[in-house]
């Protein structure tokens, strides 16, 4: 699905990630761990093409993505559901409008899809907050709204960056349950986290694999905790 081969990335001041060679298989559940500053967010951004590798090769669904322009990358991103670390919403829109925004962007605002919006808002438990402004949401509610928006286009892979970073354990469990459910529906899930308890709880539900980042490299891929 997403593959890196001897890939590296740097911001111009020495490599941040180097010698990445790995494959995210369809239907897999992956955790990306590592200490703060190890490059987890950078790696995720490479996965959804917000950043581009500076050397090596990266393929997406079998195609080389190194030469995609901005619009081509944006179109490819529609096949990826992204839950960023810090919630990125359009604050002047309601939660419902934010969740349905990918439909507007892709020109798929049909009655059927709009019904999906309502179903998704219900699925993440935000029916009572659908008409609220994103600024009025708590950390957990924001993450759930971001998750609903991430899956509205039925992506093949969902990438979440520290989804439980700013929520309590109960909310973290709820978010994990949603991600597990998505994985059981056949979606590939990649979650960056340093919450080991979250990983343990997930592994009790699904055969999750753990990728560990340290010193700019994935030092342990596919190993159990």
């Amino acid at each position: 699905m997403i593959a890196f081969d001897a890939a590296s990335f740097d911001y111009g001041q020495g490599p941040v990630l180097q010698d990445l060679s790995m494959v995210l298989e369809p239907g897999g559940f992956y955790f990306l761990t590592g200490p703060s500053g190890s490059g987890k967010t950078t790696f995720l951004k490479l996965c959804y093409l917000e950043l581009r590798i500076t050397s090596g090769q990266q393929t997406f669904f079998g195609d080389d993505v190194s030469h995609l322009n901005r619009d081509e990358a944006a179109r490819l991103r529609r096949r990826i559901g992204i839950v960023p670390q810090t919630s990125r919403f359009l604050d002047h829109l309601t939660v419902r409008d934010n969740v349905s925004l990918p439909l507007d962007v892709t020109g798929r605002r049909t009655p059927q899809h709009l019904q999906n919006v309502e179903d998704l808002i219900s699925w993440v438990g935000l029916v009572h907050r659908a008409d609220a402004s994103p600024q009025e949401l708590s950390g957990g509610e924001m993450q759930r709204a971001a998750l609903a928006r991430a899956v509205i286009l039925s992506p093949e892979i969902v990438i979440a960056d520290e989804p439980t970073g700013n929520v309590d354990q109960e909310m973290g469990g709820h978010l994990l349950a949603l991600l597990v459910e998505l994985n059981r529906m056949g979606r590939t899930v990649l979650v960056a986290t340093h919450d080991l308890d979250l990983i343990r709880r997930a592994k009790a539900e699904v055969p999750a694999r753990v990728l560990r980042l340290a010193h700019g490299r994935i030092v342990q891929a596919g190993a159990d905790l």
Binding site: Y48, E50, D71, R75, R77, F89, L101, P102, V105, R149
Partner: peptide
Amino acid sequence: AGVIETLRLIGAEDSF
């Protein structure tokens, strides 16, 4: 710029 970043994140092309 933040709005544009968000729109790109969810697959918006520049023309949109």
